[in-house]
């Protein structure tokens, strides 16, 4: 498979270089794969950080900026960043009021963040708390799984927690709204094709010419069900139903939605999906207060999409509407 890369081993490093070259308001911590605001640590606010495997761009560093993240650590492609780098990031983003981490629920991410929090507390006496996001309704949360995965709903958590941090909220306040967001958000994804990692250079999984994978993860982990290809409307119905069943919203509720592209799907098709999604929400008496359409949490070059629905209240609306200025998301007043 052809890719616009040099050596596969260098791709994360070179991507980060290209990223800070494009965005002078970002800075890389020397000798690491950690990117922070150029003016980090920002005094007078809690530092907000995130991180995870690479290959999900603009996640994670693309959400650094006013109103969102202070730092983001990039692991190898689809591999959690290491604990030592996470700890460096946490310390670099502590302006004196502590640091809050947004972690996606993967064992690698959780274990490395846990280790990093211990290290930062030990080494620099930093006050650290975190939320573990698990919005993927495709995975049953049971004794038989590692729990639901963190996927595109994480972007809403970044936005909400970022706005709370920017407005001067303390760690406890940030944790409260981050957890609230996580409780009220659900996501379900699907793939038309597999992603191709730079290292392997071939599809991670094989899908037949007429097959799709429902409940796909964002790492090319196989999904929960493989079916025949369906129309965009049918796919949208399937995903939306799964999410709404999980959220169990009352008619009249206000929601924010994301139709998220997995990286290889053209924007044209995401709008086709959004059209049906909004019809379905409307049919159920749900009121869409904001609808995002685009590539927010990708899986390299995978073709497919995910649908995210977040149940709002006045506080979440205020936090989503608060200004943010980052490479991957801008909200103006």
């Amino acid at each position: 498979m052809k890719k616009l890369i040099n050596e596969p081993e260098a791709v994360v490093d070179e991507m980060l270089e290209g990223m800070v070259a494009a965005h002078p308001e970002l800075r890389r911590l020397e000798g690491t794969e950690v990117v922070v605001r150029d003016d980090a640590p920002v005094e007078g606010k809690v530092g907000l950080v995130s991180g995870g495997g690479s290959g999900h761009e603009p996640t994670h560093a693309g959400y650094i900026g006013d109103g969102m993240l202070d730092g983001a650590a990039a692991g190898e492609v689809f591999t959690s960043p290491t604990a030592d780098q996470l700890s460096e990031m946490i310390q670099a983003c502590d302006g004196g009021d502590g640091v809050f981490c947004v972690v996606k629920n993967y064992e690698g991410d959780v274990m490395n963040f846990e280790t990093a929090v211990e290290m930062a507390e030990m080494e620099a006496d930093t006050d650290v708390e975190y939320v573990v996001v698990d919005d993927d309704v495709a995975v049953e949360d049971s004794l038989y799984t590692s729990g639901r995965r963190g996927v595109c709903g994480t972007i809403f958590v970044h936005k909400v927690a970022g706005a709370m941090a920017a407005s001067g909220g303390d760690i406890a306040e940030i944790k409260r709204v981050a957890e609230k967001t996580n409780e009220r958000v659900g996501t379900m994804g699907m793939a038309l094709t597999s992603c191709v990692t730079p290292d392997k250079g071939e599809p991670t999984f094989d899908l037949g010419e007429d097959e799709i994978e429902l409940g796909i993860g964002i790492h090319g982990e196989p999904g929960t069900e493989r079916t025949e290809i369906m129309s965009a409307d049918e796919i949208t119905e399937h995903l939306t139903e799964a999410v709404l069943e999980d959220l169990d919203l009352e008619s009249g509720s206000e929601v924010a939605t994301i139709v998220n592209g997995m990286g290889g799907t053209p924007l044209m098709e995401l709008y086709v999906v959004n059209r049906r999604l909004q019809e379905l929400l409307d049919d159920r008496g749900l009121d869409t207060w904001d609808a995002w359409v685009g590539d927010y949490m990708t899986s390299l070059d995978m073709m497919g999409c995910s649908i995210t629905v977040l149940e709002l209240d006045d506080e979440l609306k205020d936090l989503l509407a608060a200004p943010a200025e980052t490479p991957g998301l801008t909200v103006t007043e």
Binding site: S80, G108, M111, N112
Partner: peptide, 15 residues
């Protein structure tokens, strides 16, 4: 291993 492997295997093997 902790600082180079990442993922689940890093903390498990290294730690």
């Amino acid at each position: 291993l902790v600082s180079e492997v990442g993922g689940a295997a890093g903390p498990l093997y290294g730690g």
